[in-house]
């Protein structure tokens, strides 16, 4: 009788332990997911995205490809909350949070980041001052306006180290944000911000365009180092280099405002080699829409 009791207790304890282990692991693996469902976006009166589905989990790398004007940047802007890009249907959601309700600042604090295709210039604002502010807000999402910023010394050290890793001249920290920067320098500045802000979801819109081959390597290696199990990455690109260093788990093809195909890294490779003709053939309806849209804008 006693043995039975002991055994039962032992089994219960065992179960509990296993259960606990499971829970802990689940907790550990609790992966954030950016879920985009049936997203329709328009600019002014013009519908541009016409039902995009996409799910990105932390730790995954997604490549988004597609011909010029197919809507890749539009997707990136809409995800970041650009006021001009209005969501008319569908949803954007992170772990049950309706992202579409949030302004860009709240999205950033939730862990979203967009490396812009065309970063803007902000004259008179020093890179370091801007970044210190940004980092403080993103790392302490509850910070209210006027509350203290991250300590200067700590920030400086981190900035210096990060710039070093990215092969950037520390002088850039003292310059005005993107003011007089070359195209490539601007892109590096985006990567610096990505490195400092360490988002959960990073959207990179043609960060590899306009870079010389050394810079592409620095940026590609940089991204590879930065991304990891905690970062979900969406890489919008027309080139292959970035994807060589950051092999996508998924490749999506956008055509006329829809993701028409999803494959693995080999799809990206194939598109680079052969272009979009085959894709258009496989999706005549979207291809026709694309044609119509182009005629409308000419």
């Amino acid at each position: 009788m006693r043995e039975i009791v002991v055994e039962v207790i032992a089994r219960v304890v065992d179960d509990l332990l296993r259960l606990r282990k499971h829970l802990v692991e689940a907790d550990f693996e609790m992966n954030s997911k950016l879920k985009i469902e049936n997203l329709h976006v328009q600019v002014g009166e013009t519908p541009i995205l016409k039902g995009v589905h996409l799910e990105i989990s932390q730790g995954e790398i997604h490549a988004l490809m597609g011909p010029n004007g197919s809507g890749k940047s539009t997707l990136a802007y809409a995800l970041m909350g650009h006021p001009k890009y209005v969501v008319t249907q569908g949803s954007i959601d992170i772990d049950g949070i309706d992202v579409n309700e949030l302004d860009p600042c709240q999205r950033a604090r939730l862990g979203m980041f967009l490396a812009f295709q065309y970063p803007v210039t902000i004259p008179g604002v020093k890179v370091a001052d801007f970044l210190r502010h940004a980092i403080t807000n993103v790392r302490t999402p509850d910070r209210k306006e006027g509350e203290p910023l991250m300590p200067m010394k700590e920030f400086r050290i981190e900035l210096r180290d990060t710039m070093k890793q990215l092969n950037m001249d520390p002088e850039f920290a003292r310059r005005y944000l993107n003011d007089g920067f070359s195209g490539g320098e601007k892109k590096r500045m985006e990567i610096l911000q990505l490195a400092m802000l360490k988002p959960r979801f990073a959207l990179l819109d043609e960060t590899d365009s306009g870079l010389d081959s050394d810079a592409v390597r620095v940026v590609s290696e940089g991204l590879a180092k930065l991304s990891g199990p905690d970062m979900g990455v969406l890489i919008i690109t027309h080139h292959e280099r970035l994807l060589e260093y950051n092999i996508p788990n998924y490749t999506h093809v956008m055509l006329a405002g829809k993701i028409v195909e999803t494959g693995d890294a080999s799809l990206a490779h194939d598109l680079h080699a052969n272009g979009y003709a085959e894709v258009r053939k496989r999706h005549p309806e979207e291809a026709a829409q694309e044609q119509k849209q182009q005629e409308a804008t000419v």
């Binding site: 970041m80 909350g81 006021p83 302004d103 860009p104 600042c105 980041f113 807000n137 999402p141």
Partner: peptide
């Protein structure tokens, strides 16, 4: 948009 997308509030 640029500054806000880095976590600054609109007035900041």
């Amino acid at each position: 948009l640029y500054l806000m997308s880095r976590g600054l509030t609109e007035s900041e």
